[in-house]
Amino acid sequence: MIQASNLQKRFGDLKALDGVNLDVHSGQIFGLIGPNGAGKTTLIRVLTGLLVPDSGRASISGFDVLKQEHDARMRLGYMPDFFGLYDKLTVREYLELFGELSGMSGKPLAESIEASLAAVRLKLKKDHFVDALSRGMTQRLALARTLIHDPDVFILDEPASGLDPAARLEFWDILRGLARRGKTVFISSHILKELEGLVTHVGLIERGRMLFSGSYEELVQAGATRRVRFRPVGNVPSERVVGLVTEGGGQLAGIPGDEYWEVEMDDDDEAVAALVNRLVSAGVGIALPPVAQDRLERAYLQLTGRDVS
């Protein structure tokens, strides 16, 4: 469980965190989403105790990250955006190091290393040096390190950056497995599509402020408009089509003359159906685009009022 209340952090004139509140429970996969410089890494550093906030408090499994540092860290598995591995150690030595730093030794440590390596499918590489591993493998090793002392909370800072789609899906499977075991998973990303289908809960952060924090479904509802794309086909003049769209409750978002028009309207299937009927009745043919825009990205754009790439 991760909790934070009214976190504030300034770097000179820059407000990196501005009254951030957070409440993430066991079994949840919480996705922290925001563009570069939004405050994601600052928030993660505060949650892991690496950075002291100007005000507010944060806790891991009920333990204050600053006042009960040891207890909080015993329950925390942290994976920074840069994996932070020692090239000159073997996979086994690396995991041994972090197991021993968490107070483990002997048979329990050996068993835990085996279990962690099995979980991330690296058992065959345990005697290899870290610098001989591929990027996907180093990423899985970094995850194995966080698993070694069986923490309750996992905080992962942009773990999928630079991974190919297959490796990313494999990684997501491991995280889903952790959540099923009742662990709390907190993951950050600036790529919205990356987390689609993984997260159960979402936080949107922008300029240090948490714009939204709740379940994935709540987020989609919060940005409850739908953007429909189509290309009018036929001899009906463009002005007439625009008029029909407006009468049907839609608002033209894209520029007429583009290959596909974009119409923003209520997120309601019946309203969309009514608009289509209205257009077809007036003799406007409708051609649909091949790919649908994802809902999460649209909700984000709606709430932040900005474009991201």
């Binding site: 892991t48 105790g49 690496l50 040891h70 860290r73 015993m74 925390l76 942290y78 920074p80 840069f82 994996f83 932070g84 591995l85 020692y86 972090f98 730093l101 968490s102 107070g103 390190r145």
Partner: peptide, 13 residues
């Protein structure tokens, strides 16, 4: 530089 210190400092040590 390699950010290995971060991982060490988030252990209970």
């Amino acid at each position: 530089e390699r950010k290995t210190l971060e991982t060490l400092l988030t252990t209970p040590q």
